[in-house]
Design a protein around this nucleic acid. Structure first.
Length: 616
DNA sequence: CGGACAAGCTGA
DNA sequence: CAGCTTGTCCGG
């Protein structure tokens, strides 16, 4: 009699259950398959996480015979089963088992099911979260013909063939296609790319080179059946790739790889672990690898001679030397937008006015309900982003109606630039639908993601680069450098110009960008992280939510010597009163941290554990 | 998660 | 003590 262990897709039932496999199903059912089962009077979806004959002794025999696996290499933590309280068996008496109600379709490969178990430990999340990420959007009932035709190789070998993580430095304007094609010569490969637009672009080029490419999420069935290249955005780190021979992460420094919602898994970390378990090379491509990436493996450049030329010419405008009345638009910016060149201006603030002060008494305009600084999305109105309150544009202290803009947003910048340039200016933010057709654009960071190098822009100007450089986050410097890298890609390296307006022109990030050498910045970043004891020099988790106080108390009472627990703290002015109290848990490395996080008894209620949150 | 059931509260 | 709310437990 065949018995299947399953994990349900109901978040909140974080347990394994055993079911009988009905006789008609036992030929087709595999570990990873999606099924429906009856549980406590309702029918729920589930994944098969293990299969065994009931006459065999207990144990983990979920792996199909002969399937590739990780024979406990050094440093590998045996996969813990967080779904069960320690010491209690998952077995129910065989006689009382129900049968699986229905077969839904194909699911993740057995090794990805194991990987999901590891991820639930690594990010203190629930298995179902990760299994869902590894599953097709719609049920896949049957597989198709494998298509294993490799793309044509580049003229010379570009990547090292050795197993392990390789941080591959390439210029920001370099096309990753030849490197991906080179990796594909090893066998089927998994490729992760930050945005969907760039996924399509890469897939197009690989197909033109004769390769069979499955594009996630639509191509899940093709990927599961077998494809020479499986490519997709963040979620593709979980995609099926039978016979996987290498993993490639394009622009591995990109913040889009980190999931903001808990569990805060990172596609880069998943890719690295997946390659390690499979015993295949993992190539992390980046123009500006930061301290965390560089800690993952040796870094190296396939074309050191052309790396720097991928960075645009950097023009630094020292705002301290400008007429203060010129505001965000230095003489040089005005000059550039008046030429027929195509210019993209970046200002990372949406709306019209983001911070206003009374021209009469100097008071900053605040919300009368919750006291946060208010903005002015349209003329004559002040509105609060935090509580949604709006009121007319009048100073609450001296009733003056003259308010001056301390910080303007992209809407106002668009009007200003149109006036200064005499040309049509388009605005691009995250919520912009179709890209406006104009030779001068102003927008947030979304502008850099949305535009394609083929759009032919000559200049990218960062109107307030200090906002990026001096942002109150540990990764501010790395993020700022990544922005210059993205801008360099857009203007096609040395063929274009990136201009930054700043009051800190001696900042090491600017020096690194000017030299086209991210290494200049990395040492400073490493020192900062070492000093603050942050990743990669430590592992951290931020704990919050209704059940957090009790849970942290339980964690404290375990008195684990390697663990540091800070808090409770209520961060900054953004905190609504009484909400989002946080605790910070620190350990020397992830293994200690994640082991500790799985120990305390979980009180009822919401508990958010963010391991390695992106916005520290 | 959501149903079952037990324990606690209320009003007559 | 019926009728209701609130809390805890458990599912194969």
């Amino acid at each position: 009699m065949l018995i299947a262990s399953v994990v349900t897709d109901v978040i909140g039932i974080d347990k394994q259950f055993d079911y009988l496999v009905p006789p008609g199903m036992d030929g087709s059912l595999e570990v990873g398959c999606q099924v429906r089962v009856d549980l406590a009077g309702r029918r729920v979806g589930a994944w098969v996480t293990g299969l065994r004959r009931d006459d065999l002794p207990l144990g983990d025999d979920r792996r199909a015979p002969g399937a590739p696996g990780s024979p406990g290499s050094p440093g590998l933590r045996p996969e813990p089963d967080r779904s069960l309280p320690p010491g209690r068996s998952s077995q129910a008496p065989t006689g009382s088992l129900k049968a699986i109600a229905k077969m839904k379709g194909w699911g993740p490969q057995a090794e990805v099911v194991d990987l999901a178990g590891w991820a639930s430990w690594r990010w203190a999340g629930r298995k179902a979260h990760f299994l869902a990420a590894a599953s097709p959007e719609r049920a896949v009932r049957r597989l198709v013909q494998p298509r294993l035709c490799r793309p044509a190789p580049p003229s010379s070998k570009l990547l090292p063939r050795t197993v392990g993580v390789h941080v591959v430095r390439i210029g920001p304007a370099s096309d990753p296609t030849p490197l991906v094609a080179d990796a594909a010569q090893l066998g089927p490969i998994l490729v992760v790319v930050p945005t969907h637009t760039r996924v399509s672009a890469l897939a197009f080029r690989l197909r033109r080179a004769g390769g069979d490419v499955a594009v996630l999420p639509d191509g899940w069935a093709q990927a599961r059946s077998g494809s020479a290249v499986v490519v997709g955005s963040r979620g593709a780190a979980w995609a099926p790739c039978p016979g996987m021979a290498a993993v490639v992460v394009v622009d591995a420094h990109d913040e889009l790889y980190a999931s903001e919602a808990a569990p805060t898994w990172s596609a880069v970390t998943v890719a690295v672990e997946r390659a390690r378990r499979q015993g295949v090379p993992c190539y992390l491509l980046s123009a500006c690898p930061g301290a965390e990436l560089l800690a993952l493996g040796p870094s190296w450049s396939p074309r050191p001679d052309t790396e720097a030329s991928g960075w645009a010419n950097l023009e630094v405008v020292d705002q301290r030397a400008e007429d203060p009345r010129s505001g965000l638009y230095s003489g040089r910016v005005v000059e550039l937008v008046r030429t027929p060149r195509r210019v993209a201006c970046v200002l990372n603030r949406t709306g019209r006015f983001r911070l206003l002060a009374c021209a009469n008494c100097g008071a900053v305009a605040r919300c009368e309900v919750c006291d946060a600084a208010v903005s002015s999305p349209q003329a004559g109105v002040l509105s609060c982003k935090r509580c949604g309150e709006s009121r007319p544009c009048v100073c609450s202290y001296c009733t003056s109606i003259r308010l001056s803009a301390l910080r303007i947003g992209t809407s106002r910048a668009r009007e200003d630039l149109e006036r200064l340039s005499g040309r049509t200016v388009g605005e691009v933010t995250r919520s912009t639908g179709e890209l406006p057709c104009a030779d001068v654009l102003v927008g947030t960071e979304a502008l850099l993601r949305r535009l394609d190098p083929a759009a032919g822009f000559d200049v990218v100007a960062f109107l307030d680069f200090d906002q990026e450089l001096l942002a109150p986050r540990v990764s501010a410097g790395e993020h700022a450098l990544a922005l210059v890298s993205a801008a360099s890609r857009l203007v096609r390296g040395r063929r274009g110009t990136v201009l930054v307006q700043t009051r800190t022109p001696d900042h090491y990030v600017i020096a690194a960008a000017a030299a086209g050498d991210p290494g200049v910045a990395v040492e400073a970043e490493r020192e900062l992280r070492r000093m603050l004891r942050l990743p990669p020099f430590a592992a951290v988790a931020v704990v919050s939510g209704h059940a957090a106080p009790g849970w942290v108390e339980n964690l404290r009472s375990l008195k684990l010597p390697a663990l540091e627990i800070h808090g409770p703290s209520t961060p900054g002015e953004d905190a609504r009163p009484g909400v989002r109290t946080e605790w910070l848990v620190k350990a020397p490395e992830h293994r200690t941290l994640c082991d500790a996080l799985s120990l305390p008894e979980r009180p009822a209620g919401r508990l958010r554990i963010a391991v390695d949150p992106a916005n520290l």
